Every structure is written in C-alpha cells, then in structure tokens.
Computed example of a mutant assay.
Amino acid sequence: MHIQFKAAGLSAALLLATVWPALAEKISLKDVTGRDVEVEVPVKHVILGEGRQIYFLAALDKTNPFEHVVGWRDDLPKADPETYKAYLAKYPDIAKLPTFGGMKDGTFDIEQAVTLKPDVILMNVDAKTATEEAGYIEKLAKVGIPLVYVDFREKPMENTEPSMRVMGKLMGKEQLAEDFIKFRADAIKVVTDKLEAAKPARPVVFVERAGGYSDDCCMSFGNENFGKMVEIAGGTNMAKDIIPGTFGTVNPEQIVASNPDQIIVTGGMWEAFVPGGAWVGVGYGADLTEAKRKLEALTKRPAFTGVKAVEDGNVHAIWHQFYNNPYQFVAIQEIAKWLHPDLFKDLDPEATFKELHARFLPLDYKPGYFVSLKGE
C-alpha cells in the first residue's frame, strides 16, 4: 500500500512515518496447503469463503468479529440458523453483508468479490480443487487480492492449530491465537492424560454423520474429523478401516455386523435444507426434549436393529458443526464422558464450552449441543 502526499508540512509527514508502519506491514505466510502468500497485515477487509468461518474469526475478536468482513458465503443461516440469529441480534448490520455462492458449486462471483476490494479471501481447503480448476488464484493475483486456505474440516486435528496461527497473523492477533490454542490443547490433555493413565478398554463407536438428513444410511467418518475425535476420546472408530478418507458411507449391514457399543449421531437445525426432516436438532439453545425424541426415532431404522448400543441406550447426538470449527475439544470431552462415564464423571464439557464463550467468543453461552438416550 502506497501513500502519496505533497510537501505540505514536515510534521504531517513525520506523523505518517511513525504511525503508518504500525498499522500495516506486508508479510509472507504459509497457509495450510504450504503455499507462500504475501498479505498486508493486519487485514482490514476480509471475504469469508464460507459463512461458518465466523466460528474461528469470532474466537479472535470478542468485541465485533464482523468488523472487517466485507462479504461472506451464504451458508450460515441455513446450516446453523440459531447461531446466525444470535449473531444477527447482536450485530444487525450483518444482514446487509454481500453474500456469495460456493467455489465448489461454481456460484462464487469473482467479479463481485473484486469490487469489494478485500485484503484477503479466506477459503476452506476442501474448495481447493474447484478454486484451482477455475483459475481463481491467478485471476485474483492479477488484481492484488491474495487467497489463503485454512482447514477445520478435512484434517481438523492436524490443521486447526496452524489455521488459527494463520488467522492470528492475518488479524494482528497472534498472542490471542496462541492463548486459544493453549486453551484447546489443555482441554484435550485433560482427556488424553486420564486415558493414558487408566488405559480403559476401548468401546467400538459408530458415528453417523447427519443422521436423518436423508433417507439414506449411513454417512460416517474415516480416520479424521469426528472419527479421530472418537479415537482421542478413548473409543475405536468403527468406520476407520472402511472409509479411506475423511468422509464416506457404510452400509447398514456393516453396522449390524460390527455391533457397535456406542452410537453418536451428528445433528443440527436443518429445517432450511430438509423441512420436517428426521435430523436431530441440536445446537445453540436447542430444544433437547424434541432432539431426544428424534434421536430415539432414528434407532428404529434397520441399520440399528438389535445393535448393542441401542439395546444398552448408548446412543447420543452431538452438534454437527463441531466438525467444522476449532471448538472440537468440547466434542472430545463430551464423547469421552459418554464412552467412559466412570473415568470422566468429574469432567464437565458444558463448563468448558461456557469458559470458551466467556473468554473468547462474543455470544453468551446457551446449552443444547448434546443429547443422549442414556438418561442424561
């Protein structure tokens, strides 16, 4: 960024010389794909390639996480309407933010993006192939707009920390990013240290991704995302040897044959996508009585017939969006408590989530993220 001024007074020049370097600095950073990207930081104008990226941007700005957002993808009101409503109530101007379609579905409007003059566009790594095929990086580079990849979905247990560090550099909040990373690591260590000391038997766990979202059964996770969270929490992910990547599908017969000890269904408020669907509506301020009713209804499907987890009542639902944000440590604590209730009887994941909100997030905490048929 260049500033031109006429010789209209040495004092003004000296003021700019002393103040401006503190405001902006061009740096080179590595995004989570290993790309070297030059960005002027701290960034003042950001386009979010996915609306749910506000989950991690908010962790770095408790006052107003939307202050520097000039545009975002239109997914948050549909994928997580309760969180969107909470942010809208606190920051009503977000209703006026320009919205975009997605890179992967080809509805991202690059001309619109350029007119907003962002300092950076944040993109999830799962959009990388589509972004490259469309030549967006080169097109944006021609007009001086860098694109930075982050990842909280494909390999979140590997990429959450580097992604948060990238965000810290972009926003000029590096120490706050480190504070968050430590909070997250300490919360996970509470689980892993106890498991390492006790070495309990590992129950077999089937995680159903977005159970009830469609009539098909059953989407799940390989050895990443919720699949990895189960392993960290002291379980054996049933699908880790069936699904080669992060996401995939297992057939009902495989579930019956594996006879899992525990079942965890991810859910959300998806009325906008599947009106009146069988999905389990957990999330910010959810009605847990209704969520529990819908969770129980899912156990009547053929895939869960006679399965040990259903017979023993070890069927649970958890907020789907833990799969796409840096708060996975809360999910790990809750899963550990479900899998090893005696070992973790003193662990309080709700308290951890409340502390996360109190220390880092702009919203007040509301329960509703977990429900179980185990009599909680």
Rank of each mutant, 00 (worst) to 15 (best):
D75Q: 02
L76Y: 04
A79F: 08
A79M: 13
A79C: 01
D80K: 06
D80T: 01
D80R: 08
E82F: 12
E82Y: 11
A86D: 03
A89L: 03
Y91P: 00
P92E: 01
D93Q: 14
A95V: 04
K96E: 15
K96N: 15
L97C: 02
M103F: 15
M103V: 10
D105S: 09
G106S: 01
T107I: 00
F108W: 13
F108A: 02
D109L: 12
I110Q: 13
I110E: 10
I110P: 06
Q112Y: 02
Q112A: 14
Q112I: 01
Q112C: 07
A113T: 07
A113H: 04
T115P: 00
K117D: 12
K117A: 14
K117I: 03
D119F: 06
V125F: 06
V125H: 00
D126M: 12
K128W: 10
T131Q: 08
T131G: 11
A134F: 12
A134Q: 15
Y136V: 13
E138C: 02
K139R: 14
L140I: 06
A141G: 06
K142V: 09
K142F: 09
V143H: 11
G144L: 12
P146T: 10
P146H: 09
Y149P: 05
Y149H: 10
V150D: 05
D151K: 02
E154N: 14
P156W: 07
P156D: 03
E158V: 13
T160M: 12
T160K: 00
T160W: 07
E161N: 11
S163C: 08
R165D: 06
V166F: 06
M167I: 01
M167P: 05
M167Q: 06
K169A: 13
G172F: 09
K173P: 10
Q175D: 15
L176Q: 15
E178P: 06
D179R: 14
K182M: 07
R184E: 12
D186R: 11
D186P: 03
A187I: 03
A187H: 12
K189F: 04
K189D: 07
V191P: 11
T192G: 12
K194G: 09
K194M: 11
P200S: 03
P200A: 09
P200T: 09
A201K: 14
R202N: 08
R202P: 02
P203A: 10
P203L: 07
V205I: 08
A210W: 08
G212N: 02
G212A: 05
Y213D: 04
Y213S: 01
D215H: 02
D216Y: 09
D216V: 12
C218Y: 10
M219H: 11
M219A: 14
